[in-house]
Computed example of a mutant assay.
Amino acid sequence: MESIDPQTARLFLVLAEELHFGRAAERLGWRQPQVSKTLQALEARCGVALLERSSRRVRLTAAGQALREPLADWLRQAEALPQLARAAASGLQGRLRVGLVSPAGFGPLPQWLRSFRDAHPGVELVLREATLDLQLQALQAGQMDVGLVLQPAGAPPLGLAHQRVASEPFVLALPSAMRERLGERPALAELLAQPLVLFPREIAPALHDAVLDFYRAQGVQVQPVQRAVQMATLIHLVSADFGLAWVPASLQALQRDGVVYRPAPRGAPTCETWLIWQEPAAPVVQRFIDHLPLRR
């Protein structure tokens, strides 16, 4: 098929529809001898007759009939290529690889993704759940296009372009048994003295340090009893009375028996969701950036 140019393909398809050289020439704006000569060259290239011609009628041969549909498909694709290229260059076509930390799924992210998909049907969204450290590696290696990560307010840059897209307070996830032991309004010092379930520092250093800095500011040297990578796993451990956990407020949507949520103490850090990407942003990435409700 690669040896057939679009002009010749269009000629054959018009002939196959009209089955008349004069009408085909008129539709194409060609002279009839040019139509005949081009068809002969096509048949010579294929090595078979594509039309049976007599003084009374013109009809497709079996070879011509077999060629008609795939040639029409090929021509449609060829004619669509310039538009496809323009769409890709403007970010309306292509693939967007999005990394996200698990808590992002409990906030407005699903609605944002749905809104973006509806507004950009030509863009394929490929979602990958990954912690901050893995997202940074993937972005720098060109294996991911954008990431959504959790950072505390005032966190330093990550070495990539970034914008804040959401902000929410922390809440404390407490085991029901701990609430019964401490009562509804425990003193701050008593609350902070409880065992802590926390994520490892290497997966989110700034967020980890913000929590521990709050403890230190209150004169408490915390000793976490258990660590877990995923926020949802922290909640499961809380339900088993391992200790309390600091989690973004949106995670309260994850209800589990044995867990109660309480507001974080006054002066506690705020949790932000950042969109991160490599500059210069590809067109489809810029479309995504422009679509999200960025907060400056």
Rank of each mutant, 00 (worst) to 15 (best):
S102F: 00
G159H: 03
R256E: 15
G122Y: 15
A85Y: 03
V284F: 05
T8Q: 05
R287H: 07
A166F: 04
W277Y: 14
V229F: 06
I203Y: 03
V222G: 05
G22H: 11
P269V: 09
L60G: 12
A173V: 04
A153T: 10
P103L: 06
S3T: 11
R10N: 12
A85Q: 11
Q65F: 03
R181T: 15
L19I: 09
F214Q: 01
L75R: 06
A85M: 03
D290V: 07
R97G: 00
Q65H: 07
A193Q: 10
Q93Y: 06
H291Q: 11
L132R: 05
Q83T: 15
L191K: 07
L84Y: 00
L15I: 11
L19A: 04
P265F: 01
L292Y: 12
P195N: 02
T8Y: 08
L294A: 15
L60H: 09
L275W: 05
G29C: 14
L174P: 04
S167N: 00
V247D: 01
C46K: 08
P195W: 02
E18T: 11
F214L: 07
V285Y: 12
V247H: 10
L174R: 02
A25N: 04
Q143V: 01
G91S: 08
P280Q: 05
L160D: 08
A161N: 11
G64Y: 10
A44K: 14
G47K: 10
P82N: 06
E79Y: 03
W277E: 09
S239T: 06
H208Y: 15
E26I: 03
S36C: 05
D257V: 13
G105Q: 13
Q140E: 05
F106H: 03
S36L: 13
A49N: 04
L19E: 14
A206E: 12
E124G: 03
A228S: 15
A66P: 14
E26G: 08
E202S: 11
R296V: 14
A62G: 09
L13D: 09
Y215F: 15
T131A: 10
L254K: 06
S239P: 01
S115L: 03
A41W: 00
Q218L: 12
V98R: 00
P195V: 07
V126G: 04
P70R: 08
D145C: 04
L134K: 15
A16K: 09
R31F: 08
D257C: 10
R181K: 09
Q151S: 13
V238W: 05
Y215P: 03
L67R: 01
A141C: 01
Q286D: 13
A24N: 07
R117H: 15
F214Y: 13
S54Q: 15
L174Q: 09
D145V: 00
V238Q: 14
P121Q: 15
L191W: 02
E79N: 03
E190V: 03
